[in-house]
């Protein structure tokens, strides 16, 4: 069987979890691009390129970034806003994980149980998750791959995400600073 590639959807009725088809998490120092392990810097550049060339790039900060303002969270928040400014991205928060009742307002928020609604409504073509618990991030990533053509990015503070089209692991202030640099390099026409 051919190697499963984690490319943007819409993939269909119920796409598989990438981990069940041989996609492995990045090792320390690495990132993932479309299911392949690459050097962390290569992944950051790939993400930067996507962000710069997107029509509606959007950051989805999650609860771990939105609440409990530790110094780290403040600094990460500042960097996310700066990267978003640099690429002209929207910022649509995921304030919590409960399915939205009676109805989500997809213009102002995203939810892991039905993230496709927000992607569709805003015509988002590149979406970046950060500060979302890994379980909920994986739900969102898979549902988006199933029903939309959005390119997904997961900036994970832990081990990364196979279900994203591109993912960094151990994302901290330094890696966000590096991503900001990568965005600036790409904007100036590459290295």
């Amino acid at each position: 069987m051919e190697r499963y590639r984690v490319v943007p959807g819409p993939e269909g009725y119920l796409p598989p979890a990438a981990a069940l088809h041989g996609v492995e998490l990045p090792l320390p120092g690495q990132g993932l691009v479309e299911g392949s392990r690459v050097e962390g810097r290569t992944a950051a550049l790939a993400i930067a390129e996507r962000l710069v060339s997107a029509s509606v790039p959007t950051f989805f900060p999650g609860p771990l970034l939105l609440w409990k303002s530790t110094e780290e969270a403040l600094e990460r928040g500042r960097l996310v806003r700066e990267i978003a400014r640099e690429v002209g991205a929207k910022v649509i928060p995921m304030p919590d994980y409960r399915p939205k009742y009676p109805m989500i307002d997809p213009a102002v928020e995203i939810n892991p149980n039905h993230p496709n609604l927000t992607i569709w409504f805003n015509k988002i073509d590149v979406g970046v998750f950060i500060g979302v618990h890994c379980h909920q991030a994986n739900l969102a990533l898979k549902i988006i791959r199933g029903g939309t053509s959005c390119f997904t990015v997961a900036l994970c503070a832990h081990e990364g995400h196979e279900d994203a089209n591109a993912s960094l692991r151990d994302t901290d202030v330094a890696s966000l600073t590096a991503l900001l640099d990568a965005v600036r390099i790409v904007k100036q026409g590459g290295e």
Binding site: L14, P16, A17, A18, A19, L20, E24, L25, P99, N113, H114, H135, N138, L139, K142, I143, G146, E159, E162, D163
Partner: peptide
């Protein structure tokens, strides 16, 4: 779809 994806994620966890 949310429930199905949740179950897939649990299977993925074992795989990892």
């Amino acid at each position: 779809a949310a429930h199905a994806s949740w179950q897939q994620e649990v299977m993925a966890a074992a795989e990892r």
